[in-house]
Amino acid sequence: MARNRRKVEGEVTFSWVFARLLMFCILVGLFLGLTFIQRRNLKMGDELKMLERELQSAREKTQSLRSELAHYCTPRELEKSMARFQIAMTRPSEDQIRRRADPDASESGIIAPRLLVQHEPVRLTARTP
């Protein structure tokens, strides 16, 4: 029986080739797709890292500027600046004092003596050199 069996060679049909070609293309496509996605991920990761670095650097810059501003706002620095620009705090002279009736005075019109003077305590006077 075995001797009579006819050896059948595998036939290479179009569909067989197409199926395998399709399979190959799919696999290559998948590989390329995955590679592309991976490259893209890596690129995005690098971009993210760069943005994080930029954010960090911006934060540090803000901190540094805040620190500088805080330094310039200290009374010591303000006094130094005032001295540099020759700005002095002086008491007002008599003509600079406005006297007005006390708004809290009683109905009889008597003005409380202690409130007679409305005093503007300090004025900034710029002395030009």
Partner: peptide
């Protein structure tokens, strides 16, 4: 401090200096 806080004087100021 009174100058800085702009406190209203409660007594007449007579030639302070």
């Amino acid at each position: 401090t009174a100058s800085y806080l702009n406190l209203r004087p409660t007594q007449p100021i007579v030639a302070a200096s």
